[in-house]
Simulated assay, not measured.
Amino acid sequence: MATDQEIRDILAGVTTATLTTILLKKGLRNVWLRGAMPLKPGQGRIIGRAFTLRFVPAREDLATPESWSSPKSTRAAIEAMPDGCIAVVDAMGITDAGIFGDILCARMKKKNVAALVTDGVVRDLDGVLGTELPVWCAGASAPPSVAGLTFVDWNEPVGCGGVAVFPNDVIVVDNDGAVVIPAALIDEILELAPDQERLESWIMQQVNEGMALPGLYPANAENKARYEEWKKRQGV
């Protein structure tokens, strides 16, 4: 079983686009979290284990400012986040109530949370950007979470962006968004991903040299053999 450091090292060179292709071949079509896009350019590719948080629709007796002091609150959830995790927040795609603002994001940054991923939105946008916590979300909104959401629990299965995410699944985020790799499949994906990325780089090289796409992408038997010969010459 790969260590978390090995997972990060290997997947650092693999795009989320490539991962969706590999997971599709394994029968998993629904792995890209809708609505979770980079809050700002240049956040890079980040890999980490999922630490999940779940909201439900606001209910007036529960979604109150007083709830922020409850033992079961976003504040308490943040204190439970382990070093290097990616916080995955199920906000049901609601975009008119910000799940976290600058203070909560600043605390996550201090706790060395790798990134925040949500199908919802953040608030205090300038302040959130100032924390330098990498965020993938659906934008920003001024109202607080309790204006549209009730926080219910953390580290349980959630549906974020229409995708099932379980605690400790592996999350990969880059400029194309966020992808989940089920924890049980990670070792298999680690074996397949680098060669898929290498193959697609080789195909791009062939395209740049003027080769036509039929038989190249996807590669037929002849081009697969050419690719294998190229790998031998590269010492791969």
Rank of each mutant, 00 (worst) to 15 (best):
A193C: 12
N175L: 09
P167F: 04
G130E: 08
G127N: 11
A138Q: 03
D153E: 14
G177L: 11
L133C: 12
I186W: 14
W154I: 03
V170K: 09
S145L: 06
P134C: 07
V135P: 07
N175K: 07
Q206M: 13
A193V: 11
A193E: 14
E191H: 03
A183H: 13
D174A: 03
D169F: 01
L192M: 00
L129F: 12
P157G: 09
P143E: 12
A184D: 13
S141K: 00
P167S: 03
G162A: 15
V135T: 01
C160A: 15
D169N: 10
A183I: 05
E209P: 12
C160Q: 08
E197V: 14
G120H: 03
S145M: 15
S145D: 15
W202K: 10
G130R: 12
A178S: 15
E197T: 04
P182Q: 15
V122R: 01
E209K: 15
L129N: 02
A138G: 14
E132L: 08
E156G: 15
A140N: 14
V180E: 00
V180S: 04
A184C: 13
V128L: 00
V170Q: 02
M204P: 00
S145H: 05
S201F: 14
C160Y: 00
E197F: 09
L149I: 11
A115V: 10
G159L: 09
E188G: 12
I203V: 13
L133M: 14
V163L: 08
T118K: 00
V165M: 00
E200T: 08
L133W: 07
V172Y: 12
V128D: 05
A183W: 08
N175T: 15
L116P: 00
V165P: 07
A164T: 13
P157Q: 05
I186H: 08
L133G: 01
K111A: 08
N175D: 14
K110M: 07
V135H: 02
G120A: 09
V152Q: 11
E197H: 00
I171F: 08
E188C: 02
A138W: 01
W136T: 05
I181R: 02
E191S: 12
L133F: 05
G177N: 01
E132S: 12
K111L: 13
V158K: 01
V146P: 01
V146R: 08
D119E: 08
E197L: 08
L116H: 10
V113R: 00
D176I: 03
L192Q: 12
D126F: 03
A178D: 08
W154D: 07
A147H: 10
I186C: 12
D187P: 14
V152N: 02
V113G: 02
E156K: 14
D153P: 02
A147W: 05
A184P: 01
V135M: 05
L199G: 08
